[in-house]
Amino acid sequence: MLEQQLINGLTLGLIYALIAVGYTMVYGVIQLINFAHGEIYMLGAFFCVTLITAAGLPFYVAMLMAVVCCAMCGILLDIIAYRPLRRAPRLAALITAIGMSIFLQNLALIIWGSRSKPFPRTALPGYLTEQALTVGSVGLSWLQLFIFAVAIGMMLLLYLVIQKTRIGTAMRALAQNRTAAALMGINVNRVISFTFALGSAMGAVAGILVAIYYNTLYPTMGYTAGVKAFAAAVLGGIGSVPGAMAGGVVLGVAEALGAGYVSSLYRDGVAYAVMIAVIVLRPSGILGRAVTDKA
């Protein structure tokens, strides 16, 4: 029972982590909570399914293309909605983000309808629908292993990009001091675009994985996932990428344990309780630093 809940929690947590890094990276470079990030996650799932059902593409190709499309959507979102407000008060950008979230959700409703759709499972490679191994009463599916592998792989890749590449270092520099970054000759808008692309790609992957895992997708799916991943980012310390990863996993496990041992009705409640506890007890998050450091 416990082992099973831990495995389920880890699966969910890695997905939250994938979404949460998008919130935290964007916050790091432009101090904006991109509330439309959950919608990018939703679009990832819909793009992927549409490419499979309408265009007849094989799963992996559809997934890759959906991720690339979402990365471009992320860039466009920034250019259209946020860039004009770069010098405006932060509240203006924040409200715009909420507006973009509502807009994208409704756009999806118009395009794909409000009814939830199943993921076209026949398009999936056969093994993804099979059980990988069962030990006693604990089952681990190939799909869960696939989620582990993809999520951990993406996060390792992200880590390497941020730590080792020129543009990744520029991202960190920009987050630490924007004026100084510009004075280094860094094209600030280009680095911000890159950050949106990277975060959106991670979010899209998460959306696709969830749609397969729960075998369902619907236009409002980004809302709950978005709020929870945001909670994970806050839990880890907003602005901290390793924090978002850790926060996602902690939140996923807490939620699975809450659902398993208390009642599955409290699944979402646990996530919000964790977020409230963090805000009250340690507002800077697990790996975040005190806000005064930023000044």
């Binding site: 630490q176 001091n177 280094m184």
Partner: peptide, 25 residues
Amino acid sequence: TQVPEGRMIFPDLTVLENLRMGAYL
């Protein structure tokens, strides 16, 4: 190139990384 008032070095980058940012272009 400018060396701004208050130095504005990147506090969470290493000395070498700071230098490499200087050579960004």
